[in-house]
Design a protein around this nucleic acid. Structure first.
Ligand SMILES: [Mn+2]
Ligand SMILES: [Mn+2]
Ligand SMILES: [Mn+2]
Ligand SMILES: [Mn+2]
Lengths: 220, 220
DNA sequence: AAATTAAATTAGATATATCTAAAAAAAATG
DNA sequence: CATTTTTTTTAGATATATCTAATTTAATTT
C-alpha cells in the first residue's frame, strides 16, 4: 500500500520531530512543521494509523512504526540525493534547492534513485551536510556539536547546518562560512553567547549565539 | 492561475489529439488517451474551460486556446528533456523512460528546466525522435513519413517512432532498428503491405505494415 | 420523419485533503 | 480539587478527481 504525497510529507515531518530527541510528538508540533492546521493533522494521523506507519491512540500521542521509519528514510534519501544533483550537476546554490527537492522526493521509481545515486558517485552527505540514508535506510551520521557549545581554542570543521532556510544560507555565503571550512574558536562572550572564530587560519568572524547554534561542527 | 497535475495531463492529451487528427477532439478520444471514463472527461472539460485553456461548449466539441497550447508545449518540453536526461545521463533504455517522465514533467521550477536543458546541451529531440519545444514553445519538426509509405529503392534515415510503448521499442532493439539508422527500401509486398529494408548497408530486415507504419523516416 | 443507436453530460457516490468553528479531553493553575 | 487554559478531536463545509448509472443530446438508420 503506497503513500500519497501528503502522507509522505506528514510522515517525514513526524520522523524529523521524533529524531530531535523528542519523546512524544504533538499534533501542534506537526501542524507547525507542515504549515497546516491541527484539525488537518488529526485527520491525517487517523489515516497514517490505518496504514500502520504510525501507532496512534487519540489524545494519547503517537509513535512512528518501524515500517513508517523506513518509508520516511527513503523519502529523505530521495530528497537529499536530488539536492546533491541540483547543486553538483545543475549549479544550484545551496539555498535554492529545498523547494524543488520537496517536489522531486515524491517521484516514484526505484531504478531512478539507484541510477541517480550512482551518477552522483554515491554521496554520503547533502549540500547542507545532512547524511544521506542508504537504500536500506542506514544513516552514517557524524558526531557533531553546535558551534556555540565549543570552548575557546577548540578546533574543528563545519560539517552541517541546522537551519536550511535561504536567508540563513545566504548569510553564511556572505560571511564566508561554508561546509568543510576549518575553524578555531578564538573568543566567546559570556554576556550574549556570541562567538569569534578563525576560518581557515585566515579570516576572523563574529557571530551571534543564534547563528552559531545553527552551525554544526565536527571537532578535531 | 496554475494547473493541477490532472489538468496538465488532460491538456497534454488534448494537444496531442488536436495535432494528430486535426479535426475536433471528442470526449471519448480523450477518455481513451488518458485511460479514464467519459464522465470524468466532461467534468474536466468544464474546469479547463473555466481556466481558459480550452474553448468549450457542451455537446459542441472543444478547441485548445493559444494559452492552453503554450502550457501543453511546456509540459511536453519538460517530459522530453527528462527523457533525454534519463537515457543520456542515467543509462535508462528508451523503453523505460516514459512512466518516470510522466511524473517528472509536473515538477514546477523554471530554473530547473533551464539548467537541465543546458546540462543536456540543448537537445533538439528526445530518445524517441520527438522534437523538444524551446522555452517559447517553438517546435522545429523535421519532415518525416511512415516507413510503409516509402517506395522501393528510396533511401532515408530513421528519425522517430510513432508508438513509444515498451513492447514496440524492445522489438526494434531486438531487430536492430534504431534512431539514426540509414535505410533503403528493398521490397514491398502488395498483399499485406509488409516491407523489406536494408539497414546501414549491411543487414536486411522484414517487417509488417503495422511495424513499418510506426517508424518515421527522413527521406534523402 | 420517426425510431434507434451512439456520444456526451449530469446526478449522485466515494476518496483525498484542507479549512473554520464547536466540542471534548488533557494539562495547568490557584 | 475545582476552574481555567491549552490541546486535540470532531462536525460540517469546500475543492479536486474519479467512478457508475441515469439522462439528455446528437447522429444514424430505416
Ligand atoms: Mn515534499
Ligand atoms: Mn538538505
Ligand atoms: Mn503526467
Ligand atoms: Mn518521448
Amino acid at each position: 500500500m503506497d503513500l500519497t504525497i501528503a502522507e509522505e510529507n506528514y510522515l517525514k515531518a513526524i520522523y524529523h520531530l521524533s529524531e530531535g530527541g523528542k519523546k512524544s510528538v504533538s499534533t501542534n508540533d506537526i501542524a507547525g512543521e507542515i504549515q497546516t492546521k491541527p484539525a488537518s493533522v488529526s485527520d491525517m494521523l487517523r489515516r497514517l494509523s490505518d496504514k500502520h506507519v504510525i501507532q496512534y491512540k487519540k489524545y494519547y500521542g503517537l509513535q512512528i512504526t518501524e515500517s513508517g521509519k523506513q518509508l520516511a528514510l527513503q523519502t529523505i534519501r530521495k530528497h537529499r540525493l536530488w539536492e546533491v544533483f541540483l547543486v553538483d550537476k545543475l549549479q544550484f546554490a545551496w539555498d535554492e534547492v529545498h523547494e524543488v527537492a520537496e517536489q522531486l522526493e515524491h517521484i516514484q521509481s526505484s531504478l531512478l534513485i539507484q541510477r541517480l545515486d550512482a551518477f552522483l558517485n554515491y554521496p554520503k552527505f547533502d549540500p547542507h551536510g545532512d547524511p544521506i540514508p542508504d537504500e536500506y535506510g542506514d544513516v552514517r551520521s557524524r558526531p557533531r556539536i553546535p558551534l556555540n557549545e565549543m570552548n575557546i581554542d577548540q578546533v574543528g570543521q563545519i560539517v552541517a547546518v541546522k537551519d536550511s532556510s535561504a536567508a540563513f544560507l545566504r548569510y553564511l555565503d556572505k560571511v564566508g562560512a561554508y561546509i568543510g571550512a576549518r575553524i578555531k574558536v578564538l573568543d566567546k562572550v559570556e554576556f550574549d553567547g556570541s562567538v569569534e572564530i578563525l576560518v581557515d587560519q585566515k579570516k576572523t568572524l563574529f557571530m551571534s549565539k543564534d547563528v552559531a547554534s545553527n552551525i554544526l561542527v565536527l571537532q578535531s
